[in-house]
Nucleic acid binder design. Structure first.
Lengths: 102, 102
DNA sequence: TCAATTGTTCTATTGTTTACGAACAATGGA
DNA sequence: TCCATTGTTCGTAAACAATAGAACAATTGA
């Protein structure tokens, strides 16, 4: 697996983050990661094909919402909480809270 | 002007709101309305054609982010702050705050 | 080495979004 | 009534996004 690009904290943009979070599949991923981080892509039960899931993980990564690390054949995902909180204080929390009853 | 449909507070969805806010033009509209509400569509200096602006106002309205009221030939816009705060506490504030240095 | 696992990339399809100009509708003032 | 103002709708084009299947790459274990 080649090196994955992650945007720097500074280069995160609000509109891109909001867009990344505005898809139900991606929001579900973020919710799961908020509950327990460090999960491999395959451990999410997503209602889409593997290739589509890969696309959604990529959108989240490129928006700076998640971090992906290769770990053997799988890749471990985690929320970029600190970066998001630093750049957009309160945003992630309010989104997670708002998505609770989902 | 015919009656404009506004979704009820209950029917607002997080993903729809996030999507509505994820466009730079729409975010600019929301920012302006947060500073001074009750502005007509024409008072916004937007970098798009009239018809395109109309589209963006509509997306915001249908997501439940803004309220539009006919007032003569113009239409007065305002943020649905109470509804948004009730449904998604802290979300609007964090978005507005995050968009400050924009 | 071979096969299984995990995820990415490529290609294609389908539908959505953004955008604009032109035409239209509604209102209000001259 | 006529005209200006304001905003919506329509038709259309270009760009983008979500989806899936097939092929591919990297790793791990047998």
């Amino acid at each position: 697996m080649r090196a994955l690009h992650h945007p720097s904290r500074k280069s995160l943009t609000l509109t891109q983050v909001l867009y990344a979070l505005s898809d139900p599949v991606r929001l579900a991923i973020v919710k799961h990661l908020a509950e327990d981080g460090g999960k491999a892509c395959g451990t999410f039960c997503l209602p889409v094909a593997k290739s589509t899931a890969s696309h959604h993980f990529r959108v989240l990564r490129e928006a700076g919402v998640i971090e992906m690390q290769s770990e053997g054949t799988q890749c471990i995902n985690s929320l970029r909480r600190e970066d998001l909180d630093a750049r957009f204080p309160g945003l992630l929390d309010s989104v997670l809270r708002a998505s609770d009853p989902l």
